[in-house]
C-alpha cells in the first residue's frame, strides 16, 4: 500500500513538472531572446544563456525618432489601446440596456439574442469585403474609430451573451420592490441592476479588451500606417521581414503580451468565472 502510494506521487510530480515546462518554456525562451544580443541568437549550436543582458531591442522599439521603428511601434501601442477601449465602450453602451430587456422580457425580441449569438459564429471574411469597400468610399480606412466600430462585430455579440446571463442571476424581486416605490425603467436599470452588475461588467469588459487587443484580421485589412495600425500587425510585419533581428521580434512579442498576461494573472478567478458562466447553465 505504501509502495503504491509513493509510485503514485512520483508519477504525479513527474506529470506536474512536464506540464510546467510545457506551459512556460516557449514564453520563457521568448523573454530570454528579447534580452539577448542579436549575434547570440545566430550561433550554431544555439547559446541558451545570453553572454550579457542586452536591452537594446526594447530601447529600439520604445524610443521615438522621426520615421524610426520606435515611432511606429509606440504609435501602434497607443492605437491598440485606443481601439480596444473604444470598441469595448461602444459595445457596453449598446449592450447593457439591450441585455436587460432580453433578460427581463425573454419572450419579446428573443430573436435579437439568437441573431447575436449566431453572428458570433460567422467568420470575419463574411463581413470584411463590403466593410472594406464602404470604409474606402467614406475615406475611413486607417482610422482608429472606424476600426473600433468594426471590432463591434466580434465584441458586441460576446458582451450581450455574457451580460444577459449575468442579469439573469440578479433577483427580479429587487426590481419589483423598486417598482412598488414608483421607479421607472431608467431608475430600475441604473439604481437597482447596475450596482449589482458592476463586478460582472468589469469582467466582461476585461475579456472583451483582451479580444480586441488580440484582433489581427480586420487590422491587417483596414490599417496600414502609424495613424491607426495596431500592435498585432506591426509585430507580424516585424517577423515576416527577412531580417535576422530575432531579439527585436521577441521584444515586440513580450511587450504586446504584457497587458493581457498581467490582466490574466491579476483577475484569473473572475475571468474564468465570466467565461464559464456564458454557457454552462443553458
Amino acid at each position: 500500500m505504501i509502495r503504491r502510494k509513493s509510485i503514485y506521487s512520483v508519477l504525479l510530480y513527474a506529470a506536474v513538472i512536464c506540464l510546467v515546462i510545457y506551459l512556460i518554456a516557449p514564453f520563457l525562451w521568448l523573454i530570454i531572446m528579447s534580452f539577448s544580443a542579436a549575434n547570440d541568437l545566430t550561433q550554431k549550436p544555439l547559446r541558451w544563456i545570453p553572454s550579457s543582458i542586452d536591452i537594446s531591442s526594447y530601447k529600439d522599439l520604445l524610443t521615438m525618432g522621426i520615421n524610426s521603428r520606435g515611432e511606429l511601434f509606440v504609435n501602434a501601442l497607443r492605437n491598440s489601446l485606443t481601439t480596444a477601449f473604444t470598441a469595448v465602450l461602444i459595445s457596453l453602451f449598446a449592450t447593457v440596456p439591450a441585455a436587460w430587456v432580453l433578460s427581463r422580457y425573454p419572450g419579446k425580441k428573443s430573436w435579437v439574442l439568437t441573431v447575436a449569438i449566431f453572428t458570433f459564429m460567422l467568420p470575419p471574411v463574411a463581413y470584411a469585403l463590403p466593410l472594406y469597400r464602404m470604409l474606402t468610399r467614406l475615406g475611413w480606412l486607417n482610422n482608429s474609430l472606424s476600426l473600433a466600430l468594426v471590432y463591434c462585430t466580434i465584441v458586441l455579440p460576446f458582451c450581450v451573451w455574457l451580460i444577459k446571463e449575468n442579469i439573469d442571476s440578479i433577483p427580479y424581486e429587487l426590481e419589483e420592490s423598486a417598482i412598488l416605490d414608483g421607479a421607472g425603467v431608467a431608475r430600475r436599470i441604473l439604481l437597482v441592476v447596475m450596482p449589482l452588475l458592476l463586478p460582472a461588467l468589469g469582467t466582461v469588459a476585461l475579456l472583451a479588451m483582451i479580444m480586441a487587443w488580440d484582433e489581427y484580421f480586420y487590422a491587417l485589412l483596414f490599417t496600414s500606417s502609424k495613424e491607426a495600425i495596431t500592435l498585432p500587425v506591426v509585430i507580424a510585419n516585424l517577423a515576416s521581414g527577412r531580417q535576422s533581428n530575432y531579439n527585436l521580434i521577441a521584444a515586440g512579442g513580450v511587450i504586446a503580451s504584457t497587458p493581457p498576461v498581467l490582466i490574466g494573472i491579476l483577475f484569473q478567478r473572475a475571468l474564468i468565472r465570466g467565461l464559464v458562466q456564458g454557457g454552462v447553465k443553458e
Binding site: 506551459l23 512556460i24 516557449p26 514564453f27 525562451w29 521568448l30 483582451i210 487587443w213 488580440d214 489581427y216 500592435l231 498585432p232 509585430i235 507580424a236 516585424l238 517577423a239 521580434i249 521577441a250 515586440g252 512579442g253 504586446a256 503580451s257 493581457p260 498576461v261 490582466i263 490574466g264 494573472i265
Partner: peptide
C-alpha cells in the same frame, strides 16, 4: 499564461 498571450505573438514565438 498561454491563453493570455495574443495569437499573433504566439505565432511569431
Amino acid at each position: 499564461l498561454p491563453w493570455a498571450v495574443p495569437t499573433t505573438v504566439n505565432a511569431i514565438m
